[in-house]
Every structure is written in structure tokens, then in C-alpha cells.
Amino acid sequence: MSTNLISIFEQYVSGWKRAEIETVLETLDEDCIITECCGPVYRGRDNVRLWMEKWLGEGNRVLEWDVRTCGELDWIREVKAFLAALPDEDDSA
């Protein structure tokens, strides 16, 4: 698994923790699809921006998001499967 992909995911989580919309958006493809654990789906970077602006604008904040110690084992497996499914950097040459 590519170290770069892990650092991108860590940047995504860190951006949410710091409420930095641009940091999160830098990690996403223009045509990304983000699915929240509770069901809503956001398609495309522009819609993710709108979602974050609304959510953060309502005073919401991510207080804690530690994937390494997360008790949601299935979610961790999904993240690992997602990262494993992406090509390694050296595979794209």
C-alpha cells in the first residue's frame, strides 16, 4: 500500500479535525464521492465544499477522529480495503 495514499487520508482527517475546508478538498478528486456513515452521499468536490461550509457554519466541529484506535472495526476494514484497491504510485508508471 502506498505511503502517499495513507498520508492523503491522514490529511483528509486532519483537515476535518482543524475545520480546514481547503485542506480536505486538496485530497479529493473533482469527481469524488463521499458517503457519510449515516447515509448521505456527496458527489463532486463542489458539493463536498457546500456540505462542509454548511456543517461547519452551523458550529459543528470534529472533536476526535482517531482511525488507528477507532472501535468501528468494519469501518477500518472498509478504509483499508479502499486504500488497498487504489494503485500504488509505482504502478502508475
Rank of each mutant, 00 (worst) to 15 (best):
2 S>Y: 03
3 T>M: 13
4 N>G: 09
5 L>D: 12
5 L>G: 14
6 I>S: 13
6 I>F: 15
7 S>E: 07
7 S>C: 07
7 S>W: 01
7 S>N: 10
7 S>M: 12
8 I>A: 08
8 I>L: 12
8 I>M: 06
9 F>Q: 01
9 F>L: 07
9 F>M: 05
11 Q>V: 08
11 Q>S: 12
12 Y>R: 01
13 V>D: 00
14 S>H: 04
16 W>Y: 08
17 K>I: 10
17 K>V: 10
18 R>W: 02
21 I>Q: 02
21 I>K: 01
22 E>W: 03
23 T>G: 03
23 T>M: 05
23 T>H: 02
24 V>L: 06
26 E>V: 04
29 D>A: 15
29 D>K: 03
29 D>E: 09
29 D>Y: 04
30 E>Y: 01
30 E>C: 06
32 C>E: 00
32 C>M: 02
33 I>Q: 10
34 I>D: 04
35 T>A: 13
36 E>P: 05
37 C>V: 14
37 C>P: 08
39 G>N: 01
39 G>L: 06
40 P>A: 06
41 V>G: 08
41 V>N: 07
41 V>Y: 12
43 R>Y: 12
43 R>T: 15
44 G>Q: 01
45 R>K: 14
45 R>S: 14
47 N>T: 07
47 N>K: 03
47 N>G: 06
49 R>S: 03
50 L>D: 12
51 W>Y: 14
51 W>Q: 10
51 W>S: 09
52 M>D: 04
52 M>Y: 03
54 K>P: 04
54 K>N: 14
54 K>Q: 09
55 W>F: 05
56 L>H: 01
56 L>N: 00
58 E>K: 06
58 E>D: 08
58 E>H: 07
60 N>I: 07
61 R>A: 11
62 V>S: 04
63 L>K: 04
64 E>T: 07
64 E>K: 02
65 W>R: 01
67 V>H: 04
67 V>L: 13
67 V>F: 07
67 V>T: 11
68 R>Q: 08
69 T>V: 09
69 T>S: 12
69 T>P: 03
69 T>I: 10
71 G>P: 02
71 G>N: 04
73 L>C: 06
74 D>K: 14
74 D>R: 10
76 I>H: 03
77 R>V: 10
77 R>N: 05
77 R>E: 04
79 V>W: 00
80 K>M: 15
80 K>F: 15
81 A>Y: 04
81 A>I: 12
81 A>F: 08
83 L>T: 05
86 L>E: 13
86 L>D: 07
87 P>F: 03
87 P>I: 12
87 P>Y: 01
88 D>H: 14
90 D>R: 11
90 D>W: 11
90 D>A: 13
90 D>F: 14
90 D>K: 13
90 D>M: 11
91 D>T: 14
91 D>P: 09
92 S>H: 12
93 A>T: 14
